[in-house]
Amino acid sequence: MTALYVLDVPENTTVAKVAAEAGAAVGKVGPYFEITADESIVVDRRATGCRHAVWYSCVAGVAGGRIVQHDKDALRVDPA
């Protein structure tokens, strides 16, 4: 399972929301969103409304996978 951790602060909430809409499960570990999927996790940057400073610093941790894309279009975490 692939897990992406995102800190729950106001400007990051759309990242978890968009990930959930794309099919990932979203739970909480303390003040972090824990976004999990059996396959890849994909977050569309434009759907989040994030601009570059928040977008490129929204990832707190990655377990069971690795980031294969993090650019102006999307964040994609593939299983290890």
């Binding site: 951790y5 972090y32 707190a60 990655v62 377990a63």
Partner: peptide, 21 residues
């Protein structure tokens, strides 16, 4: 950076769950 995010995920799982504001 990838190694940092992997290690940080471990620390989040171990230490963040019990955190309270």
């Amino acid at each position: 950076f990838g190694k940092l995010l992997a290690r940080k995920a471990e620390l989040i799982v171990a230490r963040a769950a019990d955190w309270e504001a």
